[in-house]
């Protein structure tokens, strides 16, 4: 997730046979051929994105989703904020900034996940 540009290093080898060997195949080619390695790459991205999505849903369930239970259990009906009963204020107004904040955070993190994946796939293997 670093923003500094990576300087591209060209590695050449006089031993062309070795250079063309399977171990030097690019990651994109691994994905194209749907090899075990390619599948692992795809799965890593899917898992990261799914984990993020489930995390957002859990946050939603733990806040918004608990409101009906909260209204049942706690005597919030007679609490007034700014002259408005608390349930009305929560459901009529406060919910929307929460939804927006969750969505904004998700978009940022999902794009970061993808950037990390692109970096991973496009990095050439450099043997020491």
């Amino acid at each position: 997730m670093t923003d500094e540009p990576l300087t591209r290093v060209r590695i050449t080898s006089p031993r062309t046979l070795a250079a063309r060997s399977r171990s030097r195949r690019s990651n994109a080619a691994e994905i194209d051929a749907l090899t075990r390695l390619g599948e692992v790459y795809v799965q890593s991205l899917m898992r990261a994105q799914l984990r993020l999505a489930v995390y957002v849903v859990l946050l939603l369930a733990g806040t918004l989703g608990l409101l009906p239970v909260l209204f049942l259990v706690l005597p919030v009906d007679h609490v007034h904020v700014l002259g408005v009963p608390l349930p009305w204020l929560l459901l009529g107004v406060a919910v929307y900034p929460l939804l927006l904040a969750l969505a904004w955070w998700y978009v940022r993190r999902a794009e970061q996940n993808e950037a990390a994946f692109v970096e991973l796939v496009e990095r050439r293997e450099v043997s020491p």
Binding site: A28, I31, D32, L34, Q49, F117, V118, E122
Partner: peptide, 12 residues
């Protein structure tokens, strides 16, 4: 799955 999840910038 490749099509659904990989960003368009990756050429696959």
């Amino acid at each position: 799955m490749v099509r659904l999840h990989l960003p368009e910038t990756v050429e696959v």
